[in-house]
Design a protein around this nucleic acid. Structure first.
Lengths: 192, 192
DNA sequence: CGCCGAGTTGAACTGAATCAAGAAACGTGG
DNA sequence: CCACGTTTCTTGATTCAGTTCAACTCGGCG
């Protein structure tokens, strides 16, 4: 259950086995089945979630009822609504599992306690966010000023593993295009 | 020269005057005139820059020579190419001043030394990035699935002060639309 | 004074959305 | 394990927002 956390930590900072046990204790395990929600629009986001197994995504819903995917999280990624988490305001996002999933939740209170207990954890947190920022930036770059086809090609190149696991309408939503357009693009580009 | 840094720090963490003096010493002042570059495509980004005065923006250039604005930084904001900074790879971005500016540069080496010298600074760094992430996310939300007009309205609402200082072609580039389209939108929306 | 970049305006064109309808895949219960 | 309903995906026809191309204005700045 804690393998992913362990690996993730090991990449960034060195912890003694005792420290790791200490860290572990602050995370709350949780399982979600496919189509269950971790967060619903209007609720305040209380924790960030590390995906140990499975896959989730976050999205907002606009006035016309259209979904807009914000983030996908596979094994090893964190997902949450950072805005709501930091400000305490109700979230505008939904976070939903699109596969059966196992998560480790870190509440803000636990995070703060953990930071006091294991100061080196701060470095880990910072690096996580740095990575998330860079990933988001790449997404912006791969979207802005690009045609639907180029966006798809970009995603195909950056995260091929993702595409294999995702239903198409989520891909389309993530790319900011319609299902129909994506379908047409795919029929022309032999699915490598 | 260090007022902005001082205020920025004060918001996030408490430092004694002595600690602040210590922190200051790691930042390198630099002035840029309008249209001068802080970073050019192909160079490795060595530092992040806090804007004490003035305004800069970062952008990439695509195959067809079109600019795509990534970020604007006014007083109090940091700007850099985090990707290049973290990986050491050559940057794909340019960072240019669009007003005469005064900056405080923090090299990665200095940052690391500073983190050792003043561990509390790590918290500040983390919070900076958290904010940058949230800001970027809002941009994505304000762009994806929105019409040109809605994007402009969103920006007008979120950062009205920015719009007043920016040349229009940069606004257009940031919004991912053409100058012409922006011009037409503005002619219909009386500039509040 | 004249030039050049920035902004405006108009007309034609086009990539992608929308509308519509059918085919395939999926899962749920009998 | 099959039948049925629901959701996902595909394909075609039409429409429209925004780009592109082009010409013209305006406001600096050398």
């Amino acid at each position: 259950m804690y393998e992913v956390l362990q690996q993730s930590l090991a990449k960034e900072i060195n912890l003694t086995p005792e420290e790791f046990e200490q860290v572990k204790a602050f995370f709350i395990p949780k399982k979600l089945r496919k189509n269950q929600f971790l967060l619903q629009e209007g609720d305040v986001c209380r924790y960030s979630a590390l995906v140990e197994k499975g896959a989730l995504y976050s999205y907002s819903t606009d006035e016309k009822g259209a979904k807009h995917v914000v983030q996908f999280a596979l094994e090893g990624s964190f997902i949450s609504d950072l805005f709501s988490l930091l400000t305490g305001e109700p979230s505008k996002l939904n976070i939903e599992a699109f596969e059966d999933s196992e998560l480790l939740l870190l509440t803000q209170e636990n995070r703060d306690r953990l930071l006091s207990a294991v100061p080196r954890f701060e470095t880990y947190m910072r690096q996580l966010i740095e990575r998330a920022y860079v990933a988001l930036l790449r997404r912006v770059e791969g979207t802005m000023g690009r045609t639907a086809e180029e966006r798809y090609a970009h995603l195909l190149q950056e995260r091929p593993h993702l595409l294999a696991r995702l239903p198409q309408h989520l891909i389309a939503s993530y790319l900011g295009i319609t299902r129909e357009t994506l379908s047409r693009i795919r029929s022309q580009t032999p699915t490598r």
